[in-house]
Design a protein around this nucleic acid. Structure first.
Lengths: 381, 381
DNA sequence: CTGGTAAGTTCAACGACTGAACAAACCCAC
DNA sequence: GTGGGTTTGTTCAGTCGTTGAACTTACCAG
């Protein structure tokens, strides 16, 4: 029983309808009359709501388009000139930042390769702040979100970061919030934000799995249009779904996890190459070891995804990170396993992520935008 | 982006608050004043809402309790005398029905052992209707729900019933609705309703997995207090999560699925007994083959659940059906696997289902009640 | 320049919640 | 048994947001 916890009053209605209008505009700009029709609200109500949003500078009025019969419509659209959302990312071997407009357009972005493995937290945060300040001209921000390579538990705390252990338990939200004079920095897993990032790229619909092939293998689960994080934030650990119960031992304590077949480290080692780029070209060149390693990884990923999809029944899978680069070679064995093993018999749509390594920063900024659009009345800037 | 699809107005507010009050009463009956405090609404509003609900006969006023200082409170509670919800179940080897009051109390129930494997659908439906009519005195019903052993797709159609193939594709909702002169019969999987059923029994909180150990191995996923069904209704197929990619072939086309280690058929065969009751006593008696089979099943179930929980991160697991009977023997190997393999390191609470074989019927009726309480304004009887 | 058409605004009405004042019902103490 | 205290529940004016219809605005076409 999911009980509605809080009472509703007219303001609740107003908030709901504001969000409704904003969502309609985001989907497609248009006149008040058109919005009224699409949302099901009255022209009068839409006018009132749009007025409020114009005053808040969330929407702007455009110029009348090609003239037709009747009074010309004055279309409204999301305001690209409003305060932007800032997305940040700390990962194992880079820092990144990006600035997103309310419209979803990227105003600026930057990726800075740095090995963060053995650096003190304060130094990383410092450098990230400099990166952000270089990108964002002084001025109000819509909000800030930070993607990290690890599990974020309740209270925005990083409870597990196997590939960047220094960050474990670190309070990241406060110093970053202070450094940018913003309150309430959103912190989440890089796979989770990556999932949202590809929402903004290729719009895979409201239900899908985003597989993040970074050092670890994670999955961002988007269900009914929103992220599924699990009770403690550990949801989506595709890397530790079991492929073979007596397989090679895994860092998690188990055996035969997906990561032991399809993780980046294992993959590179088996293929006998040094880095992802080398792996990609080796596969393209048809080198036997590389092809074998990727085929094996595809198979394991297929088995893991079959388990996942038999449990979740989602219609779309987006492969990100390393797996997006290896998409062509990875797909055949992966699909073969899925076809064999899915109870539903419904083969999900399989897509490579279009946004590449920047999915997570984009998604982080996008999450801020989405949050803003979901409750415009709460905004203050 | 989960967009709010429909506009809100004052009636939306009313409906929300009606549900809020009903939920508060369901949790614990009390005076209008107490409800006002617990819901956060005003005394005036609660009075108005309660008046409407009394008129609808959803609530009733009780007698003032032991007198204290001040004007005596007149507590309201859910009306046990209102029209009951009817839960039905068609399973492989029985039919069942139960009548549930708004309060959640069981007014009547019956289980009829019949082998339905080779009977025509019409005959099964006919017998089920007779069972229902024997249970329910003529009069209005709150609603009807039907649990079936298979996958229910969009449009209430049974798209897959491996253990009762005759039912596949059958239109069940219409004849049953007609037979009971009710519109809109809820149809769903037996594991899904089973999950809801144990919600009504041992109240495991809003997030848990219910493992249904019937002929097949299914799981009902309850997330944020409501069932997760997946895009096409195939969610929760724990039986086909992979334990060992090159394990024994499975009916689904894959290899090494959980069902091949922990399914009822396999389990009975390995233990060398004929039926669940015999298995239970053999295990209690410590017979080697039986103990070994159950241990092996527990291990496989542990591996499968580890994969599931690494993906979903839920805090509680309820074992139902066969597994509830074998709980003591199954638990140690199962927990050992979970402890090894869960990334979160958080061992979920493991409970045996209290309601036993009747979980599904109870859950079906409970779903009707829940739906009614969720939008009291929509009720008409 | 006049009629037609569509967009957007104004306004009274309605429904729902709020808050404060008030009425009701009972206990307790003197 | 009578009055004060205390808590419950109701009444009522006030406020807010949506509705629907009438009205105004703005532009095109002939």
């Amino acid at each position: 029983m999911s009980r509605p916890a809080s009472p509703a009053d007219q303001q609740t209605v107003r908030r709901h309808n504001l969000a409704l209008v904003v969502a309609a505009v985001a989907e497609q700009p248009g006149s008040r009359a058109a919005l009224a029709q699409r949302t099901g609200l009255t022209k009068a109500t839409v006018s009132s709501l749009v007025d409020a949003l114009l005053a808040q500078r969330i929407l702007v009025e455009g110029e009348p388009p090609a003239s037709r019969v009747g009074r010309p419509a004055r279309p409204v659209s999301l305001n690209p000139a409003g305060p932007p959302a800032l997305g940040l990312e700390i990962n194992v071997d880079y820092l990144a930042a990006c600035l997103l407009e309310l419209t979803g357009a990227v105003r600026a972005r930057q990726l800075l390769p740095v090995d963060n493995r053995d650096r003190p937290v304060a130094e990383i945060v410092q450098q990230l702040l400099e990166l952000a300040q270089g990108l964002a001209p002084a001025g109000p921000l819509l909000g800030v979100a930070l993607a990290v390579p690890g599990v974020v538990g309740p209270g925005q705390v990083l409870v597990r970061a196997p590939n960047l252990p220094g960050l474990t338990g670190a309070a990241l939200a406060e110093p970053i919030g202070q450094g940018l004079s913003t309150s309430g920095v959103l912190v989440d897993n890089e796979a989770n934000f990556g999932a949202l990032g590809c929402l903004h790229g290729l719009r895979p619909g409201p239900d899908f799995v985003y597989v993040s092939g970074e050092i670890g293998v994670g999955a961002g689960l988007v269900v009914h249009g929103s992220l599924f994080r699990g009770t403690s934030g550990y949801a989506g650990e595709l890397g530790h779904v079991v492929v073979q119960q007596d397989g090679p031992p895994c860092g998690c304590g188990g055996r035969g996890c997906v990561e032991q077949y399809a993780g980046q480290d294992v993959l590179l080692r088996r293929a006998g190459v040094a880095d992802p780029a080398a792996l990609e070209s080796a596969v393209r060149a048809g080198e036997a070891a590389a092809v074998a390693a990727v085929t094996e990884a595809g198979r394991a990923l297929g088995v893991g995804l079959a388990s996942l999809l038999n449990v979740l029944d989602l219609p779309r899978v987006v492969l990100g990170g390393l797996y997006a680069r290896l998409f062509a070679a990875l797909t055949p064995p992966l699909l073969a396993e899925l076809d064999r093993r899915l109870v539903s018999g419904i083969r999900p749509e399989l897509l490579p992520s279009a946004v590449g390594a920047e999915a997570a920063v984009l998604g982080a900024a996008g999450a801020v935008v989405e949050q803003a659009l979901k409750d415009p009345a709460a905004l203050s800037f």
